[in-house]
Design a protein around this nucleic acid. Structure first.
Lengths: 242, 242
DNA sequence: CTAGGGCTTTGATGCAGGTCAAGGCGAAAC
DNA sequence: GTTTCGCCTTGACCTGCATCAAAGCCCTAG
């Protein structure tokens, strides 16, 4: 559950959005200064500690969020405890596209997280006023569909080695938004999260990390730190069984 | 490739949309009579034979479609031929949400198919004129995201038996749009399509059909015809390993 | 500095589903 | 009717990943 909800005064909030460095990446990029100011009227800053739930998969879907810092894990569970992680959200990612009455997955902070929270009713009013916003959101939704399809291919047809390689490459491109790809990435999630994201077990994930390391494709300065020696080689590994 | 593209005269087209029985299910439900008439100016009816490609996964994404009859299979391939079927589209389904320059998957008719084809440029103009249309499309996109997540859970964590049971239940609910669930469904796709959709092999799909039949969960009057004896029992099978 | 606990890795073994190989079966062609 | 051909099913065997079990490795608390 949400720990701290700090209402933002009109003045400070306005200031914040205008100077927000994520503005060009997030859905806010659809809005002009003037329009953004209006968004500010309905946004609240929210902070979560690592491990806290943003929402649970049957909660009424009252809010949407824009991650401003930290990482959020999305997942679905079966009654017997089997879990599928459906995604990891980073700063500038939008959370809560759901169209129905309730959320269909659980969102949990895996690091300390800050985000902008919107009441979905307010957001609906914003859509009507600024169709550009809805257009942008459709764009976001389409991108999500495309990655979901990639993930289906991964889960349905790829080997453990291909899965982990694909995953690392994804993280690499996301962690360097717009910049050139430097070869080092940080893993804020633990092995169980990775396993549940890739449809594997922790043991297989661990063994596969070891193999990639022994094959010289990656280095592991620490458990949560991966250096990619050659992104092209890893891209091969991501699409060739073995 | 598209075989027959029949331009529709303004008069006949107008008539068609107004009396289209799928109107309330498709994206057209967002539009009033007057607005729909305008959509008609930019739509073309397209017919395909079974087996024909609608578009290929690297083609420029110039068109979007509304299926009016038949079934379309969506899929992605790896270089070595492994294939993941990402979905089956039925009448009233929208095809071509892609946001990028190119399609990211292949669409192929698996039965004779008819659809309404839109030039994406025209569609963009329509969005601007009728924001309701874009709103509706966002709704469609969100639904697609939700099913994609269900499919990830299926591919990542379910057993063969659970996968096939889930699949049959999905078909059951889709093939009876809005009506009560009668227990019989038609399988327009072959075993290879099902296998590639569920992340299995044809052999496993076949064996699993046999098991479900022997367990009394389904009957198979013919290869492409399935009778669901008890939807609740099948729903159990869809979420319990074994 | 040492002990404890939670992650991660590694090893040994098992099994669900893949692979390989025959048959079956129904529809279309002749 | 009978041949053929493409799909589907079944059987025998194999394997990649899961499962079960036991160390290792931090990190934190005392």
């Amino acid at each position: 559950m949400v720990t701290s909800i700090e209402p933002v005064t009109a003045a400070s909030a306005r200031f914040q959005c205008e100077t927000c460095e994520l503005r060009s990446h997030s859905i806010c990029s659809a809005l002009q200064d003037e329009e953004l100011r209006e968004m500010n009227q309905v946004v609240r800053q929210v902070s979560l500690d690592a491990g806290q739930i943003v929402f649970f998969e049957t909660d009424p879907a009252d809010f949407s969020f824009n991650i401003t810092s930290g990482v959020v894990r999305l997942s679905k569970m079966l009654a017997d405890g089997r879990r599928q992680v459906t995604g990891f959200l980073y700063p500038s990612d939008f959370l809560g596209l759901a169209v129905g009455k309730d959320y269909t997955q659980t969102a949990e902070a895996i690091t300390p997280v800050r985000m902008c929270r919107f009441d979905r009713k307010d957001l609906t009013r914003m859509y009507e006023k600024f169709p550009k916003l809805e257009h942008r959101l459709l764009e976001v939704a389409c991108n999500e569909i495309v990655s979901a399809q990639d993930q289906m291919l991964l889960l349905g047809r790829k080997t453990a080695r291909e899965r982990l390689s694909s995953f690392l490459l994804n993280l690499l491109s996301r962690s360097n938004l717009g910049e050139r790809l430097i070869g080092e990435i940080d893993l804020p999630m633990d092995r169980a999260d990775i396993a549940d994201y890739l449809g594997l077990t922790v043991e297989t994930v661990s063994r596969t990390f070891t193999k990639l390391r022994k094959d010289g494709l990656i280095e592991m300065p620490s458990k949560n730190r991966i250096v990619i020696r050659d992104a092209d080689d890893l891209a091969d590994a991501a699409e060739n069984p073995d």
